[in-house]
């Protein structure tokens, strides 16, 4: 799968720690970490909406397509 979640980059730009974002959007640190590390199989529109609202960004800034990326385990 070539989709990479660029949450770490956007968070670094906003100087916001991961646990702070998790607290603000109401999901656990563990789940947000799954998203950040690319282990997630899918993302809910509601989660994407909450992240974009909180980080004031577009979904395109969070997601990137890399054609030659190996499958996550």
């Amino acid at each position: 799968m070539g989709i990479v979640f660029r949450l770490d980059r956007v968070l670094a730009d906003r100087k916001m720690p991961l646990n702070e974002l998790a607290r603000r959007i109401g999901i656990t640190d563990a789940n947000l970490s799954i998203l950040k590390t690319g282990k997630a199989k899918a993302i809910r529109i509601s989660t994407l909406d909450a992240i974009c609202k909180e980080l004031n960004c577009q979904p395109g800034e969070l997601l990137e397509f890399k054609p030659d990326l190996p499958e996550p385990e």
Binding site: I27, N31, L32, I34, L35, K39, A40, K41, A42, I43, R44, T47
Partner: peptide, 8 residues
């Protein structure tokens, strides 16, 4: 179930 668990 596994897919549901990995849907954030």
């Amino acid at each position: 179930r596994e897919e549901q668990d990995l849907t954030i």
